[in-house]
Simulated scan of single mutants.
Amino acid sequence: MSHDLFSSLVSFEFSASVPLLVCDVAGEYRLAEADEVLLAAQRLLARRVRGSDALSSPALVRDFLRLRHGALECEVFAVVHLDSQNRVLDYVEMFRGTVAQTSVYPREVVKDAMARNSAALLLVHGHPSGLAEPSLADEALTQTLKTALSLVDVRVVDHLIVGGREIYSMAEHGLM
């Protein structure tokens, strides 16, 4: 998903009188398109999230996830990798599905956690329908992943479901 058009942003200010400009690969400035603004915001939030304490900075993590998953047209399952101090190591989109479901393979999640030396994970996926409530399949998947990851001493801190602007935390609702 990288775009070569982003070599520079002229301004982070936004108002009707101050346009947001981008410098393309040829060095020419032009008005930014909506997708480019969103991509720039995602990159900025990703830099801020990486290394932050996911549990003491939940608003920052949630803002990042809303931006990444809130407007997707298909379900995407992702993992936020954490170190032993709950600092964000990485964010990885692992599986893409359809408008109503995605297939998640526990073996691949465990392999990815081991490859990144993660101590804990935040599981994340979006509901393109806009409803952030978990399905029974979401709850079963969470338990399956918790069991598989516990075998290699990786904790599952939460499973967050993004439905538009809303985020449902399974941990906050006692489902972990």
Rank of each mutant, 00 (worst) to 15 (best):
L131E: 15
R96K: 14
L89C: 05
D158A: 09
P58C: 08
V152N: 04
V99E: 02
S17H: 06
H127V: 10
V109N: 04
R116E: 04
V109A: 06
P128F: 06
V156S: 02
G130H: 12
F14W: 09
E133G: 10
V99R: 05
A26F: 10
N86P: 02
E172W: 02
L121K: 03
D35P: 06
F64K: 04
E75P: 10
T144K: 10
E108G: 01
H125V: 04
V104S: 05
D90M: 07
Q101A: 13
P106D: 05
A54P: 00
D158W: 03
R155F: 01
V154S: 04
F64C: 07
R62L: 07
L149R: 07
K146W: 02
P19C: 07
E133P: 03
E93H: 01
T144I: 15
R47S: 12
L131T: 11
E36C: 10
M114Y: 04
A113H: 05
Y105C: 01
F95S: 00
R165M: 08
H173L: 07
E133N: 11
V152S: 09
A120N: 03
L38A: 15
L151Q: 15
S8M: 13
I167T: 12
V76C: 10
Y91C: 10
G163T: 09
F12H: 09
V92N: 07
G97I: 08
S135A: 12
R165Y: 05
A120Y: 00
A71Y: 00
S2G: 11
E139M: 15
L31M: 10
L60E: 03
L55Y: 02
G164E: 06
E33K: 13
A32I: 09
M170Q: 15
D138T: 09
S129N: 14
H159Q: 09
G27I: 11
V37W: 06
A40N: 10
A16I: 00
M114N: 04
L39P: 00
Y168D: 06
V37L: 12
A26M: 08
V80G: 06
L44E: 13
G126W: 03
V79E: 05
L160N: 00
S56G: 02
I167A: 07
L5K: 13
